[in-house]
Simulated assay, not measured.
Amino acid sequence: MSQSLRAKLGAFVLLAASVIGLITALYAYFTPLTGVTGSLGALVVIAACIVLIILALMLATLQGRGARIALRVLILIGLAGTCFAGLLLHQWWLCVAMVLGLIGLIIDLCRPAHNTRPTHL
Rank of each mutant, 00 (worst) to 15 (best):
A56F: 01
G78S: 02
I54M: 12
H90Y: 13
T61A: 11
A60M: 12
L105Q: 04
L22E: 08
L57G: 15
L22I: 05
V19P: 03
V44C: 04
A7K: 09
F30E: 13
A7H: 05
Y29E: 03
A80K: 07
T34F: 12
L22A: 08
I107D: 04
A47F: 06
M1E: 10
A16F: 03
A97R: 01
I77Y: 11
I103D: 01
I46S: 12
G10F: 03
A48M: 15
G66C: 09
A70M: 05
R68M: 03
L14K: 09
A47G: 03
G104M: 02
F84A: 14
R65Y: 09
L62R: 15
A97L: 02
A67Q: 10
R72I: 06
A113G: 12
A56T: 02
V45N: 10
G21T: 03
I75V: 04
F12Y: 09
I54W: 13
G86F: 06
M98E: 01
G86H: 05
H114L: 14
L89N: 06
G64F: 09
L89W: 10
G81W: 12
G10Q: 08
F84D: 06
M58L: 14
L105H: 03
T116F: 11
W93G: 05
M58Q: 15
L74G: 14
A60N: 08
L79M: 08
G104F: 00
M58P: 09
L109W: 07
N115K: 13
R111C: 07
V51K: 15
L40D: 15
F30I: 14
F12S: 13
C83W: 14
F12E: 11
I103K: 00
L109R: 07
S4T: 04
T116V: 13
I20Q: 07
G66A: 14
L57Q: 10
A16M: 01
L100G: 08
W92H: 07
Q63R: 14
M58H: 14
M1R: 06
N115H: 15
Q91A: 15
G10N: 07
T61E: 14
S18A: 12
P118Q: 12
H90D: 10
L59W: 02
I53E: 02
T24F: 06
T82G: 04
A7L: 07
V36A: 14
L79D: 05
G35E: 02
I107L: 07
L88W: 08
S2V: 00
A48R: 15
M58R: 14
A56R: 03
C83N: 08
A28D: 05
P118R: 11
H90V: 10
A67R: 09
G101L: 01
G10E: 06
Q91H: 12
F84E: 08
V73H: 05
L43Y: 13
H114V: 12
I53S: 02
L88S: 06
A25N: 05
H90Q: 11
R65E: 15
R117Y: 09
L100H: 06
A42H: 03
L121F: 11
L89I: 08
R111Y: 02
V36S: 13
R68A: 04
G64T: 13
W93P: 00
R72G: 10
F30L: 15
R117P: 06
A113R: 11
G78A: 02
L89Y: 12
S2R: 00
